[in-house]
Design a protein around this nucleic acid. Structure first.
Lengths: 266, 266
DNA sequence: AGAATAGTGTCTTTCAGACAATATATG
DNA sequence: CATATATTGTCTGAAAGACACTATTCT
């Protein structure tokens, strides 16, 4: 029997053919009461000219979490953003070039912190508002069961240009649908929405409610929302009153500050 | 500018170094009122002699879902099992040989259908009961924040031998903890538990309750459980009465049959 | 009858949804 | 004061949790 050292010396990773591994980042933000997603226009084949989710190859010396952080820093110029793994897409034909499996991540970025090259030719990027995604049920097999209409949701660009999920590159419509459904499902029992706050140490409950409404795609009852948030967070000391807002129209709102849990969970 | 055809011809997948991609399958079952997991004892380096989650390399012509189905068929001799992607683990040092990322799947197998080589030397496999996993909160970053005690749960083998998460190969303790927490979190709003029924077309509510209790690790109120299941499933026509059980001790139980939804969701 | 298991009913508290009413700022 | 926004209160029905009680079989 060989020793562990001998084994490691004899081990040849090239004996198997390996797929490419990429990390795709769904960079979401909330602006003007709408959930929006950062897409980039592809300037190479395949799907040249189509809009796509930003991504990149996983380097050998970084975890997928690290790669996601790196890519969002490169693409949106922002660090210390809430990132969460969504799903790993691995259908055989999803990339026409070669075998590519993609680990998809959701990033929740406050609109004010987002930086991207809106106009530049080389790497054109734009925020698209998302509408028309229905069915909040959690799909256990995102790559199976492509229902008709799965890709029929609407994306509205910065100049009002409208495309649908079918106009996107690769299987990115499927990924976006999965992401929105996941966000909706987790909204009520996680801190997801807080990741979109411009300043978590000073926000109003109206601001937080508008984020929830943008993600869900429908309005919420104001009183019930306040009651629920205060019960879930204020009693536990997760949010705290910080004094009144100033210089706004109407009654000034109470400002709150939010405390992240150590691991970002619940 | 090159055409798409030219691009495809020029594309060289080997220009990047690729990690290995494996699929790991957490084969769960419920037997004797306990949640149990199929582990195999490694007979090669690294971690020779340690217990590990079964897995295998992703082939170039199969999706991760397909690979998971293939592996569970090879390892447990069973097909058409409920499979669900858990998480993709990709920390750099998780495999000492080379860079390996692992797409983990949860399989829910009825005990009676499970076949594995319990005694054979070549590929020793065993079912381990899982105890002592606490904190049902959904961890957003399973690979970060290794709390002390994360791997301190207890696994009890077929002969009563006891090991802890720390005795497992690779980062498999972390994977198991993530899986159990995920199952607990989804138990109440998915069909997860039904995957463990010996015969979904003929089961009692007591049998279903024992599955829930095994996953959660604590007893449930009998009346409340019945009420909730009947409200959620019987009203929607998802379960139907099939007549009385026969030949058992005590009052005979009503038998039910369960209808899977097309996509296996909710 | 007694043991064992299955199934029902009731009471209380919590929570979600709908909606009305009140409070405090600006112009 | 009119307008705009924030905040509180109230009512109802659904649902969860605790727990007592009844039903049907076998030995």
């Amino acid at each position: 029997m060989q020793s562990e050292q001998q084994f490691l010396q004899n081990y040849d990773p090239s004996q198997y053919e390996h797929p490419s591994v990429t990390v795709d980042i769904l960079i979401f933000t909330v602006a003007d009461k709408k959930l929006r997603l950062l897409l980039i226009r592809r300037n190479t084949h395949p799907f040249q000219g189509k809009w796509a989710i930003p991504g990149g190859f996983l380097r050998m010396d970084e975890s997928a979490d690290d790669a996601a952080e790196r890519r969002i820093s490169e693409e949106a110029g922002v660090k210390n953003i809430h990132l969460e793994q969504l799903y790993t897409f691995s259908a055989v034909g999803r990339d026409p070039r070669t075998r590519v499996i993609s680990i998809a991540y959701i990033a929740t970025v406050p609109y004010g912190r987002l930086q991207y090259s809106a106009g530049s030719e080389a790497d054109e990027a734009a925020l698209f508002a998302i509408d028309g995604i229905t069915g909040e049920s959690l799909n256990m097999h995102p790559e199976k069961a492509a229902m008709p209409g799965d890709s029929s949701f609407i994306l509205t660009g910065p100049e009002g240009e409208i495309i649908t999920g079918n106009d996107l590159a690769f299987d990115h419509a499927k990924i976006i649908r999965t992401a929105v459904q996941r966000m909706r499902g987790k909204l009520n029992y996680t801190d997801l929405a807080f990741g979109f706050l411009e300043d978590p140490s000073s926000f109003t409950l109206t601001e937080l409610r508008l984020i929830h409404e943008a993600i869900l795609g429908h309005p919420l009852d104001i009183g019930n929302f306040r009651r629920t948030i205060k019960r879930e967070y204020e009693a536990a000391g997760r949010i705290r009153e910080k004094g009144l807002e100033k210089g706004t129209v109407g009654r000034p709102a109470m400002l709150y500050s939010f405390s992240q849990t150590p691991d970002g969970s619940l």
